[in-house]
């Protein structure tokens, strides 16, 4: 199953539409609760990042029996220092975003924590593409 979502950059309240929809679909498909939660959180953090930093983007999700793959792409400013961005607590989010409960520098670290693989393809001035994979049954892979 392939799903495509537009993540609007100008409406913070809609961040979570894509991950919420994916979560409900995975539930209906009978994936284990832990797998559903990990995939939903990773995609949700990605959505939040695209809204905060990149003016929105797209989310393409592929659901296979053994894995969920999410490709999150934006045309934002890119990440100048990926190593720093992966450090817990390091954030470039402005104060108005912190006031909304985000921007604690946990976004990318959380995505890495909850996924089985994370690939970051980013270029300053061009944008960022995250490829996130969550395995449906990691112990057996």
């Amino acid at each position: 199953m392939k799903l495509h979502y537009e993540v609007p950059g100008d409406d913070f309240t809609r961040a979570g539409d894509a991950s919420g929809d994916v979560k409900r679909r995975l539930k209906r498909l009978g994936f284990p609760p832990d797998v559903i939660r990990r995939a939903a959180i990773a995609i949700y953090e990605g959505e939040i990042n695209m809204v905060i930093h990149a003016g929105g983007g797209t989310a393409d999700i592929e659901i296979m029996p053994d894995r969920i793959t999410a490709v999150l792409s934006d045309n934002g400013p890119g990440i100048p220092d990926v190593e720093k961005a992966m450090q817990e607590g390091w954030s470039t989010a402005p104060d108005n975003i912190r006031a909304l409960g985000f921007g604690a520098g946990m976004g990318l670290p959380n995505i890495r924590k909850y996924s089985d693989s994370l690939n970051i393809d980013t270029a300053v001035g061009k944008g960022t593409t995250l490829t996130i994979t969550v395995l449906a049954n990691p112990a057996q892979q």
Binding site: F12, T13, A15, G16, S19, G20, K23, P33, R37, A40, I41, Y44, I48, L100, G101, F102
Partner: peptide
């Protein structure tokens, strides 16, 4: 904190 992302976060965390 009062915004819709509180509900979204709760949803993600079951």
């Amino acid at each position: 904190l009062v915004n819709s992302q509180v509900v979204r976060t709760a949803e993600m965390m079951d």
